[in-house]
């Protein structure tokens, strides 16, 4: 969306706990279409990082190619970003994370970027439990190439071009769960109350965190007959429960409240508070998650909220047993075994 931003800071503007303003988490002006769902997600990312009080330079943003993948330019202007190539953000994020385990990584992708050209990398990043918040800005179409159906478009859904999509949709959260993803959620760009705590929870998760965010494309896929339009999404949305994220410092043990609430303690000390949980649903129980997702699908509902979490998971560095020190900070003194070791190696080749 292109509009003139006021340059002055609102007198009420609040600093977060480390002294940054919300503005410090903003980026350049968006050049996306006015009303594009992606812009709302960018703004949720800004709000989540501001509220979590992460130093902006301790976050790295990565993306593939598409309208969605342009968004890193529009948030976290003081964070480094890498707009990679179409469908290959996961591998670049893998390399980045391996180089420096101390940053937080936000990977943004589109449904075309992830569910088609990038499916291989998406799947394998999950398998390795790469420590990244992986946001799919899901509009059921290829926005940047003018609205072709994507692999997440529902069978029968109609884009602005008017022909019903003949193929079955790939449901990314179901797939991710099946592959062993340790954090799976879906949200809607139009539901900030849900999206912001979801992003915060994902940022605190020590492994791969998928957020499939329905993000309508107002230009090519917001028409009647589309199952990814604002109207359709609002009409069919069904939340697993409401989510709140409480970042706190001290250790908290899981405390099961009566009835339909649940608190999940994360390793960094924060907690996810879930309430109004759907009947019998437990997002830490995979079987329960799978059942819930299938049930929603057969009912034609768009299930949102936290679908699954394994808070005790081990991320990629832990799986590889690499040093606690970021690899990119090591110098020749640490990395280089020296001439004496080399002389010994030489003697093995004589």
């Amino acid at each position: 969306m292109t509009y003139i931003k006021p340059a002055f800071r609102h007198p009420d503007a609040q600093k977060n706990s480390i002294g940054f303003y919300r503005k410090d988490y903003e980026g350049a002006l968006s050049t996306l279409c006015a009303g594009c769902g992606h812009d709302s997600i960018s703004s949720a990312i800004i709000q989540a990082c501001f509220e979590l009080a992460i130093e902006p330079h301790k976050i790295a943003k990565l993306s593939g190619i598409g309208c969605s993948s342009k968004t890193p330019a529009y948030y976290l202007g003081q964070s480094h970003g890498f707009n990679t190539v179409h469908g290959r953000m996961p591998s670049v994020a893998t390399g980045a994370y391996l180089a420096n385990r101390d940053l937080k990584y936000i990977g943004v992708s589109g449904d075309g970027d992830s569910a088609s050209i990038g499916m291989g990398q998406f799947v394998h990043a999950i398998r390795r439990n790469l420590n990244v918040v992986y946001i799919i800005m899901n509009n059921g179409c290829y926005g940047l190439t003018k609205g072709q159906d994507s692999a997440t478009a529902d069978a029968g859904s109609m884009s602005r071009k008017g022909a019903p999509n003949p193929f079955e949709a790939i449901d990314m959260p179901s797939l991710a769960l099946e592959l062993g993803a340790t954090f799976v959620g879906r949200s809607f760009s139009g539901d900030k109350a849900q999206l912001i705590p979801m992003i915060k929870a994902a940022l605190s998760h020590p492994g791969f965190a998928l957020l499939d965010v329905i993000s309508p494309c107002v230009t090519f896929n917001n028409n009647k007959g589309s199952t990814k339009s604002y109207d359709y999404t609002r009409e069919h949305i069904e939340a697993t429960g409401t989510i709140d994220f409480v970042p706190i410092e001290q250790e908290i043990t899981v405390d099961y409240k009566e009835g339909s609430s649940k608190e999940i303690a994360l390793h960094d000390g924060s907690i996810i508070e879930l309430s109004k949980l759907a009947n019998g649903f437990d997002p830490t129980d995979k079987l329960s998650s799978i059942l819930k997702m299938h049930e929603a699908r057969t009912k034609g509902q768009i299930l949102t909220g936290l679908m699954y979490i394994d808070p005790d998971t081990k991320g990629l560095h832990d799986l590889l047993q690499t040093s606690d020190t970021p690899l990119n900070t090591m110098g020749a003194d640490v990395l280089n075994p020296g001439q004496a070791a080399l002389a010994k190696i030489n003697s093995e080749f004589r």
Partner: peptide, 28 residues
Amino acid sequence: GKKNYAIVQMEDELASMGVVLGASWNGA
């Protein structure tokens, strides 16, 4: 006893090169 290096067998060569770029971009 932890490693001062990481080796990942990727899913293909595209991904391998992606890792190289990501890691190098990030200073490794």
